[in-house]
Design a binder for these strands. Sequence first.
DNA 1: AATATATTTCAAGAATCATTGAAATGAAAG
DNA 2: CTTTCATTTCAATGATTCTTGAAATATATT
Lengths: 103, 103
Amino acid sequence: MDETSALTAFAALSNESRLRVVKALVEAGPDGLSAGEIAERLGATPSRASFHLSALADAGLVTSTKQSRSVRYAVRFEAMGGLARYLLEDCCKGNATARSCCG
Amino acid sequence: MDETSALTAFAALSNESRLRVVKALVEAGPDGLSAGEIAERLGATPSRASFHLSALADAGLVTSTKQSRSVRYAVRFEAMGGLARYLLEDCCKGNATARSCCG
DNA sequence: AATATATTTCAAGAATCATTGAAATGAAAG
DNA sequence: CTTTCATTTCAATGATTCTTGAAATATATT
């Protein structure tokens, strides 16, 4: 994860709708959710959900796979962990206090 | 760390100038840097540096302490770790792939 | 007291981001 | 092949964020 990717990922997670999407996808498990299901849970228009899903996908935090006529989204845990690693190692240089979050 | 604080922290870190400030403060160690030194490293006007420093302080990611006529800023490692923890535990529910960043 | 230094605050404008609804795309069903 | 369903794209508008320079604040020095 380089600085540019980290900036994009932080920006993606700095929006309430998008953070809620990520949490819903984590809850949903490996099969994830379709764009429509996500829009419904968000109480958002399809267009609005699609906008936020694109931001998350561009940041590499979710995958999208087309299945017949719907699109399923799932969280990319390795990207989430990669961002946490960036925070702890690249930003904080492995500082012990910061790393205590790894418990 | 609640969701609102996490959103503010992600927003704070989603800006290149502010991410550079955090890295500079980590490099600088416990004594941190003055607002003027930070502005200089950033190649930014004092006003612009102050704007970004306020965002980082509001997010709880840095502390500011007035020392005679300058203001010293330092990184709050527990807040950085708290954000990483939020990412791994609250968002990812402790998922093992995400947590592998703790290596 | 007057001046210099360090920083913040403020107002204005530029740039970016988010929401909306309509139109476009594409895949399935009748 | 037309219609329906799921999603994305687009253009317009509104909202937020960023930058700039000037003015304000506060502390130190002469």
